[in-house]
Nucleic acid binder design. Sequence first.
DNA 1: AATGTATACGAACGATCGTGCTATCTTCTA
DNA 2: TAGAAGATAGCACGATCGTTCGTATACATT
Lengths: 203, 203
Amino acid sequence: MPVDGRVARGDATRRIVLRRAVDIASVEGLDGLSLGRLAAELELSKSGVFALFGSKEELQLAAVETASAIFAENVVEPTLRVEQGIARLRALCANWLDYSERRVFPGGCFFFNTGAEFDARTGRVHDAVANASRAFAQFIRSTVVEARKAGHLRESVDVNRLAFELHALGRAANADSVMFGGTEPYALARAAITARLDDAAVQ
Amino acid sequence: MPVDGRVARGDATRRIVLRRAVDIASVEGLDGLSLGRLAAELELSKSGVFALFGSKEELQLAAVETASAIFAENVVEPTLRVEQGIARLRALCANWLDYSERRVFPGGCFFFNTGAEFDARTGRVHDAVANASRAFAQFIRSTVVEARKAGHLRESVDVNRLAFELHALGRAANADSVMFGGTEPYALARAAITARLDDAAVQ
DNA sequence: AATGTATACGAACGATCGTGCTATCTTCTA
DNA sequence: TAGAAGATAGCACGATCGTTCGTATACATT
């Protein structure tokens, strides 16, 4: 399949723009993104950037998609390479905390920030962010379910509650660390997660 | 002390503006606040609203202060009316979850939203939000310390970690409920908090 | 009664926002 | 090699932003 050099050029620019866009959005929010600023920082014309996406909303949606891909690459995929069961569940928590702590996005977890920004709004951007958040929450839940099915977790554990708790601890570590700096929040979260999983595990 | 009618009038307007401002900010963020929109909704002149605060940043800082007062009234004060110890700790968690669930602010917890908005920025607004967040985290921690000193919690409990966990569960319930609707997140958080405190309690 | 102070307004400022329209490149197709 | 197609730039638009200025009004101080 021969590539069209014109669209290839456009795609390359789009990628450059989007990589910067998600970084900005993780700090300033998806509304804090502005075409003018984006163009100025990348030394492109505002109208050129605009033409690549067609509207500000499309840019925001594309940014959410780009962030999803980066998130999948850094968190979901390495987790899926671990054997099913409690080992994968532990890996999931560790990978997510590492992803947050490594500042894959300079403002911490992209979806934590944009989620808080759009949680109480309506529209396509809200829906995109909500769907991505829901998908990850479901991923945690299904990983917990797998671990229980594998016989690694006690039958009595409430999977919804355990998934909720693990997700809560991770998000709190991200929030506290970005807000106040330091790595202590991650240490607290790791200790709490370990204790919680040891408690839920058989034996 | 005789009141100055002019200042009294200004203070009254300021109160009206700020009450609306915190509601808007809890949904749209402190940056989403605009003098023009605020003035239009309240049928005041933009310049009049501006003059009351002197700058947009001062308005944002005043909004944070107003939100702090509302938060103290709804969460901290009722908690302090409960006897020290594990009872007060349980009341603190319950009061915070109720405050979030009752939508004292239409966008959920004011400090969750503005915290996520300003966590990775610098400046006076960041500092104000960070200080308010830190103060509440410290309040949770000191309530845990009290409960342990009262002999209601096991000696072995790590107060920093328990405070972190309780705070994490509450914030996650707020986030999930605002994003996806429904009251299930609060039920999950209440169950998790109860279990965690029962586990940490003596006997 | 006269002077000063604070609230509140209307109009306008320069800056920036998102969005068009048009022209100029580069690249592919016939 | 001519022309179509896509990427990018330049320029201008209406709207909105925070802010400033001048002014009218209400209250306080003298």
